[in-house]
Design a protein around this nucleic acid. Structure first.
Lengths: 248, 248
DNA sequence: CGAAGGGTTGAGCCCCTTCAATCTTAGTGG
DNA sequence: CCACTAAGATTGAAGGGGCTCAACCCTTCG
C-alpha cells in the first residue's frame, strides 16, 4: 500500500508512538474513509462556532489553535506539526469552541467523525491510543497555563522554543537544534501572552546570550542545555519517555 | 440501592450530564470497585511524579490541580467540585505531571485504573461520556490559557468567579448567585497568574462596583449580567448547552 | 491569650505595554 | 530591472498595570 493509497500512515505513526497496535488495528486505520485537501496559509480549517463534522490529520505543514477575545486580542494555545490529530478536541462537540487555522501551506486529511468514533470503540487499542493522544494535548495545555501564568517573558519564549524543537524532532521533521520556525513574532506573542515588541526583545536576548541563532524561517539552538534551563523546560509533560509502558 | 451502597451515584450523574446512558451502563458504573476515603484540607491526592493507580471521583468538598515551578511559584489550572472525575488526566500516564490537592475537607472515591479502562471499552456509551468529560476538561484548560494570557487582572478574577458560580450550579451545589467560595486570595492569585495583593484589589473593585459581595467563605453575585460582561465570560466553552445533541 | 493564617492597605519600582518610527525582505506589476 | 507595496522585524521613548516590600488588622483555634 503506497503513501498515496491511504495518506493516513502519519496518523498511524503518531498513534503507535503512544500505544502498541496490532496488524488488524493498522489495517483499520489505513482503511478509514478520508479526503485529502491542500490548504493555503492562514486559512481556517475550523472556525469557532462551527458544527464540525470531520476530524483532521495534519499531513504536512504547520497549524495552530486559537481564540479571539472581545477586544480583538488573540491567544494561541497549540501549535501542530506533521502527524498531529488536529481536531478530536472540537469535533466531538456540537459546536467548536475555538479556531483551528493553518500557519503555512498544509496538507490535511479529513475523516468523518462517526468513523473515528466507531473505530475508537470497536478497536480498544486504537481507542486507547486516541484517548492517550487527547490526554497529552491536555497535558500540554496545562503546561501552557503555567507558562503564561507564572513565568517571565524571556522564560516563556525560551520554553516555547524548547517545546517546538522537541516536538519537531519527535515528528521526524528535523534535528532538535536546527528546525523550521514558521511563527512570526506576533504569533509567538499570541502564544506567550506578550506583545510582539517584547517578543522581539526577548528573542534578541536569547540570541545575544548565544543560546539561539535566528535565520529567516529557521531556528538554530546553540546551547540546548542552557536554553532548557532558561526556559524552565522539563520534557516530562510531553509524556514521550514512558511510551508503551504496559500493554494493558 | 442506597447512596452508601455505591457512592458512585455522583459519577453516574456527571456522566449522564454529558451523554445518555442505558440501564446496563448505570449498573456497570455503580458496580465499579472502589474505596471511599475522607481527606483533610490541603492534602495531596496525587503528587507530581507519582505513578497513579486509581482514578478518583470527588464526592464532596473542593479540590484543585496545580504545578509548582522552580522558583517555588504555583499555578493552579483547575478547580473541582462535587461529582467531578478527578484524575483521568493523570492516571493513564505512567507518571503524574501535576499535583491534585484538596482545598477543603473532601470525600473521594478511588477506582482502580484498570477497571475504568475496561468499562470505557466494554461499554461504548460510558466510554463516550468519559471521553466527552476529558474533552470538556481540555476546553476549560484552553479558556484558562486565554484568561491568564490575554486578559487584565480585573477581567481574570471576574471570569474565574463566573465559571465557578456556573459549575457549582450545574453540580447542584448552590444557586448561581450565592455559592460557597473556598479559595483564599492567594489561591485565586495562583489561578489567575496574579499576586494575592493584586487579587485583593481586584475583588475590592468588583465589590465596590456592586457586582459581588464577599462574606467569609461565601460569594454573592449581585449583578450576574454585568459580571459576565466584565469577566468576558461566555459559557460556550463549558459545553453545557448542547448536551445529548445526538445519541450517535 | 498568644499564634497563625488570611485579608487589607500603602508606597515605590519594574517588567512589559503602548505609541511611533525606521528598516528589511519578499512579492508584484510596469 | 526597478519602483512600489505590504508584511514583518527592529528600535526608541514614555507610561501604566501589576509586583515587591512592608506594615497592620481580623478571625480562628489550641
Amino acid at each position: 500500500m503506497s503513501v498515496k493509497a491511504s495518506g493516513l500512515e502519519l496518523m498511524l505513526k503518531k498513534l503507535e508512538l503512544w500505544r502498541p497496535l496490532e496488524d488488524e488495528d493498522r489495517k483499520a486505520i489505513l482503511a478509514l474513509p478520508h479526503t485529502i485537501r491542500s490548504v493555503d496559509p492562514s486559512i481556517y480549517i475550523v472556525r469557532q462556532g462551527d458544527a464540525p463534522t470531520h476530524t483532521c490529520v495534519l499531513l504536512s505543514g504547520f497549524a495552530m489553535r486559537n481564540k479571539i477575545i472581545v477586544d480583538g486580542a488573540r491567544q494561541i494555545f497549540a501549535i501542530h506539526v506533521r502527524g498531529d490529530l488536529l481536531d478530536v478536541q472540537n469535533s466531538f462537540f456540537g459546536k467548536a469552541d475555538h479556531n483551528v487555522q493553518t500557519l503555512t501551506h498544509c496538507e490535511v486529511a479529513f475523516i468523518p467523525v462517526e468513523a473515528v468514533l466507531q473505530i475508537i470503540f470497536e478497536r480498544p487499542h486504537i481507542g486507547k491510543a486516541i484517548l492517550y493522544d487527547t490526554l497529552v494535548d491536555a497535558a500540554i495545555f496545562r503546561e501552557w497555563i503555567v507558562n503564561v501564568g507564572r513565568r517571565d517573558g524571556r522564560t516563556r519564549v525560551a520554553h516555547l522554543l524548547c517545546e517546538f524543537a522537541l516536538r519537531q524532532e519527535v515528528a521526524g521533521l528535523a534535528g532538535r537544534c536546527s528546525f523550521s520556525f514558521p511563527l512570526t513574532q506576533e504569533q509567538v506573542a499570541d502564544c506567550t501572552g506578550l506583545t510582539p515588541i517584547h517578543v522581539n526583545r526577548m528573542l534578541r536576548r536569547l540570541d545575544e546570550a548565544g543560546l539561539v541563532v535566528r535565520e529567516k524561517r529557521t531556528m538554530h539552538i546553540k546551547d540546548w542545555e542552557q536554553l532548557q534551563k532558561v526556559g524552565d523546560f522539563d520534557r516530562e509533560y510531553l509524556h514521550l519517555d514512558a511510551l508503551h509502558r504496559d500493554s494493558g
